[in-house]
């Protein structure tokens, strides 16, 4: 092929590729994806008809009567993503951990109970919707006192909302914090 012909073919192929891969492919996928209902649109959770969050995107819970999520340097601002990327040798990480542990001590009075590591570490996305079941159970005593719900009710709520490993093999068991707090609210009402 001559240079000229090569360039013409390359331009035509780029245009055709734009049609196939940038327009038809994403639209067709979105169309067929409607089979999975709300999932194409971000798995939004509604409460009394109002969108209160996405099942997949974590949220910050500050009130005394909710389970707390993991740390997030972006404060669960889902218009962006990504953690602080701190290495273990970075003094900033050591200071952050010390400060958080102090806060946990003040709030939860764990005594001899071990603090689950996921409560004082940041996830990679900084939007992690889950905490470990241990991290949820860790908060039960405190929440029972604050909400007046019995510890056994809270424990069974957590148990209900614990998602197990895939096939019992892959990944880790976890609790979706937003769903857990919504369930907790229902009990309160």
């Amino acid at each position: 092929m001559s240079i000229k012909k090569n360039i013409v073919v390359a331009i035509k192929l780029t245009l055709l590729s734009l049609l196939i891969f940038s327009i038809v492919y994403p639209l067709l996928l979105g169309g067929v994806g409607q089979l999975f209902a709300d999932k194409t649109a971000g798995s939004i959770i509604y409460q009394d008809g109002e969108a209160v969050g996405s099942r997949l995107i974590g949220q910050n819970f500050e009130s005394d009567s909710y389970f707390i999520s993991r740390l997030s340097s972006i404060n669960y601002d889902a218009s962006t993503s990504g953690s602080d990327n701190l290495a273990a040798s970075n003094p900033k990480l050591q200071h952050r951990i010390a400060a958080d542990l102090e806060e946990i001590e003040k709030k939860y009075h764990p005594g001899n109970k071990a603090v689950p590591a996921d409560l004082i570490t940041e996830s990679g996305s900084a939007l992690d919707p889950h905490i470990s079941p241990e991290a949820a159970y860790f908060q039960v005593e405190y929440l029972a006192e604050k909400t007046g719900i019995s510890e056994s009710t809270l424990n069974s709520l957590i148990e209900e909302h614990t998602e197990s490993k895939l096939l019992g093999l892959f990944g880790e068991s976890r609790v979706n914090v937003l769903e857990l707090n919504l369930a907790l609210e229902e009990v309160l009402d």
Partner: peptide, 18 residues
């Protein structure tokens, strides 16, 4: 601090719970 931390899940900094 004098708290113990349960790190049995390994290094969770920068990792997703799931």
């Amino acid at each position: 601090t004098n708290l113990t931390v349960d790190q049995s899940a390994g290094n969770m900094e920068g990792k997703e719970t799931r």
